[in-house]
């Protein structure tokens, strides 16, 4: 897995063999530049694997058309949205595009799905605002609502809490956890919030320099896998607290 460049291939990750079960909250942990985004981009077919395959419901994602994939997998990306005057409602409604007709007319089912996505993410009060008026935390919830409206079994989020304060980070994580429990969706996120991931995730994919772990948080703690996540000079994993702590300076 990695980037195909003109003459040479840059391998970011190799020997990735993970299986993700339906209805789980999966977090991908790893330090900057280790390949979290590459992993997610490959799973979501934004880029091709160098070798091997991504199977979604036992079907190779290469053989799934864009159209079909859009009803199975939705995305929340880190990239900034281009400036426009879309309202929050219109933005969430765009999530229905895989189901609407050629002129993009919303059916009864479409509006129902949009409304339930709005209710689940608690953004009712925002829906008539323009999306550029929102705070980062609100925008993130709206983007999650858009992914929910797309009504897919799998939602992939790339660092959904990157610009958020502690309060909003916890809010997003508990929202995602709630969605997994209530809707049985499979949610895969990459994050740097290792402490929260350990508490909330059903499964953690841990990318370290030498090895790739994929297991339940407790199992990983028992395997002492978290010790490899960061260089030990500054941060240590405290298995009693089940948290990373900073070394005393």
């Amino acid at each position: 897995m990695g980037y195909l460049q003109k003459k040479h291939t840059k391998i970011v990750l190799s020997n990735v063999n993970i299986e993700i079960e339906k209805g789980k909250l999966v977090t991908v942990l790893g330090k900057n530049g280790i390949g979290k985004s590459t992993l997610l981009r490959t799973i979501s077919k934004v880029q091709k694997p160098i070798s091997g395959a991504v199977l979604i419901n036992q079907k190779n994602s290469v053989q799934i058309s864009e159209k079909e994939l859009s009803t199975q997998l939705s995305l929340v990306l880190t990239e900034r949205l281009p400036e426009s005057q879309l309202t929050v409602y219109e933005l969430i409604a765009l999530g229905r595009q895989p189901y609407t007709n050629w002129i993009d007319k919303l059916s009864e089912t479409d509006t129902k799905k949009i409304n339930s996505a709005i209710l689940q993410t608690e953004v009712e009060h925002l829906q008539n605002m323009r999306f550029y008026e929102l705070s980062d935390g609100q925008l993130q919830r709206v983007l999650i609502a858009r992914a929910l409206a797309q009504d897919t079994e799998i939602i992939i989020l790339d660092e959904p809490t990157a610009h958020l304060d502690m309060h909003h980070t916890v809010k997003i994580f508990s929202l995602l956890k709630k969605l997994v429990v209530e809707t049985q969706k499979t949610i895969i996120i990459s994050t740097h919030e290792a402490n929260l991931a350990i508490q909330l995730a059903d499964e953690i994919v841990l990318l370290t320099e030498n090895k790739l772990y994929s297991d339940k948080p407790q199992e990983l703690i028992d395997k002492k896998a978290f010790e490899d996540l960061f260089p030990k000079e500054l941060i240590k994993f405290n298995s009693k607290l089940q948290q990373f702590t900073m070394n005393k300076i």
């Binding site: 934004v46 864009e66 159209k67 009803t71 595009q97």
Partner: peptide, 19 residues
């Protein structure tokens, strides 16, 4: 018109919407 509206979110989102 439909793809144009999805382009308002950027090309990656448009692609993920089946465009």
């Amino acid at each position: 018109i439909k793809p144009l509206n999805s382009f308002l979110l950027g090309e990656n989102y448009a692609k993920s919407l089946g465009i």
